[in-house]
Design a protein around this nucleic acid. Structure first.
Length: 413
DNA sequence: TCTGGGGTCCTAGGACCC
DNA sequence: TCTGGGGTCCTAGGACCC
């Protein structure tokens, strides 16, 4: 018996979950069988494709492209807006099934998990199929399962032929199964790195694996070492359990319905974003010590500005006042297309009560914030809004991922 | 090809300390 | 006074992931 790693990846996750849900609700249309996609807001035609069906793929529609473009390629494309709460439930249901196979599960993203299992090598594919079928029969959507002796190889394996498949990628299979693939198929080789590698005449994962390590490190720093190891199948991280996989920052951002030039308008959006960020922060029982704003101009250039606070806080108003200050320190007076608010430097709020500052005032403030959060959670986020939003078209709270927030992946395995 | 939003990590330069 | 070195923290920007 040896330890093996399994990577479970939901096929076209958002679309599969949407399809499975609609069928459960009695629909006789299976979105997976027609050209369809999940993305943006189909009414305004803004936004992008987040997931697509296999029939939609035949129209050359791919993830990340604008809805506008997708409709041009396929006018009868069925598009549905994303429903993140549904996806979190589906993700949780899958997690519950995986728990019956291993106590060690690492949720890598909403639709991907790693688990380690002690088994004999001959039983691995059967085990993978068992997981695959279990999820399909109980939950109505399909997954790919990748199996290997480490997480990296398991992840690469789950990306082989889709959907509804089990693949292995053991070290002795690297040469035949992984090295012929284009280098951009490797985890952690994105657009920028791929371009640099092509410039070095490295085109396949095999090219990368046999490249000179010192040269790669000279060109790409530590990232060069990392991807060289990945290309050679070298990776040894353990399953990271959720306790050690804590949140490091919380942020929300939005593309504005139209470009703005007035700082008063920017303040509105900063407040609306801060409302959501601070609410999530309090929900996590955390305090932040750093506030960051980011600005994207109409010409798509972007910049950010941050500030470390004198003392950690979870108060909406303190964070908002800081974002305003940051905005005025950094705004280049160009028209703005996108704004973001993010907090980092998180700490637990256990000792908040024992702060040196006036306890009574702090408690009053905390109670006020808490009461607002509770009301919004119970009756909807627009139940109570700040007065400044009256008669404005701007939504008083902006940003996704609410109540059932859970820890997501990091760029490391 | 430049279009969304939510993240993490790395690096380099500057400030500041001893 | 302007000459050494080591360390940490902060900040801005870039790269990557889904």
């Amino acid at each position: 018996m040896n330890k093996y790693y399994f990577h479970v990846d939901v096929n076209s996750a958002y679309l599969s979950w949407e399809a499975a849900y609609q069928i459960q609700q009695g629909s006789d249309i299976d979105l997976r069988m027609i050209p369809s996609a999940v993305g943006g807001d189909p009414k305004t035609r803004r936004g992008i494709i987040l997931a697509k069906s296999i029939p939609a793929k035949k129209y050359d529609i791919h993830t990340g492209e604008t809805l506008y473009k997708a409709f041009q390629k396929c006018p009868h494309l069925t598009v549905v807006s994303p429903r993140y709460h549904l996806y979190m439930k589906a993700s949780q249901a899958m997690h519950n099934i995986l728990e019956s196979y291993s106590p060690n599960i690492q949720r890598f993203s909403i639709d991907e998990s790693f688990l380690d299992i002690y088994a004999s090598e001959t039983s691995l594919e059967d085990l993978g199929n068992q997981i695959r079928i279990h999820i399909k029969e109980d939950l109505g959507f399909t997954v790919n399962v990748g199996i290997s002796s480490n997480k990296l190889l398991a992840k690469v394996a789950s990306d082989f032929e889709k959907p509804d498949n089990v693949h292995t990628l053991f070290p002795h299979e690297i040469k035949s199964k992984m090295w012929p693939l284009p280098v951009e198929d490797l985890f952690m080789v994105g657009r920028a790195t791929a371009k640099k590698l092509h410039g070095m005449n490295i085109h396949t994962i095999g090219d990368l694996a046999s490249a000179d390590l010192d040269y790669l490190k000279y060109k790409l720093k530590s990232h060069g070492q990392l991807i060289w190891e990945y290309a050679n199948g070298i990776e040894s991280s353990k399953i990271r359990l959720s306790e050690e996989n804590y949140v490091k920052g919380i942020g929300n951002s939005t593309t504005l319905p139209r470009d703005i030039n007035q700082s008063e308008d920017a303040h509105m959006y900063l407040l609306a974003l801060t409302e959501m960020v601070a609410m999530r922060l309090r929900h996590e029982n955390k305090l932040c010590s750093v506030v960051v704003i980011s600005i994207k101009n109409s010409d798509l250039s972007r910049y950010s500005h941050q500030m470390t606070l004198f003392s950690p806080t979870d108060d909406t108003n303190v964070i908002y006042q800081t974002t305003k200050k940051l905005f005025h320190q950094s705004w280049k007076n160009q028209s703005i297309r996108h704004l973001g608010v993010r907090v980092t430097g998180l700490s637990n709020n256990d000792y908040y009560q024992y702060s040196l500052f006036d306890k009574k005032n702090l408690d009053t403030l905390r109670n006020l914030n808490q009461t607002l959060d509770d009301l919004r959670l119970k009756y909807g986020k627009y139940t109570i809004s700040r007065g400044v939003f009256l008669h404005k078209k701007i939504k008083p709270i902006i940003g996704g991922i609410g109540e059932d927030d859970y820890k997501m992946m990091s760029s490391l395995l």
